[in-house]
């Protein structure tokens, strides 16, 4: 019944780095199928000569002076870190 047979929630969850349970996958597959059915209405709009809007107020190339500014000392920058050591964030091992 879903109008979005291409939506593969299990695969998209991998792209999003988000583990989902089997129950969540099934629920989202149905619910987001309904949302995509609604969204399909956009196909009716002729957009062949329309430029996309990325931002509500178009401002481009906003520069600031390239000058050093005060920044957090390490203890403040690390104050919310779930794991830290030697004034550094501790990350999961990424190379063998």
């Amino acid at each position: 019944m879903s109008a979005a047979p291409d939506l593969d929630v299990r695969y998209i969850a991998q792209l999003a780095r988000l583990d989902l349970s089997e129950a969540e996958i099934a629920t989202f597959q149905t619910q987001l199928g309904h949302v995509l059915e609604h969204v399909a209405a956009l196909r009716r709009v002729d957009v062949s000569a329309v430029e996309p809007t990325a931002h509500a107020s178009a401002v481009f190339n906003v520069f600031r002076d390239d000058e050093p500014r005060a920044s957090f000392p390490p203890e403040v920058a690390l104050s919310n870190a779930p794991r830290k050591a030697n004034e550094l964030f501790v990350v999961t091992k990424v190379v063998e």
Binding site: D6, L42, R43, V45, V47, E51, P52, T53
Partner: peptide, 16 residues
Amino acid sequence: GYYDAYYLRAQKVRTL
């Protein structure tokens, strides 16, 4: 594969 069909199209309708 879906960017143009959904996101880009939505941005164009946003313009309208």
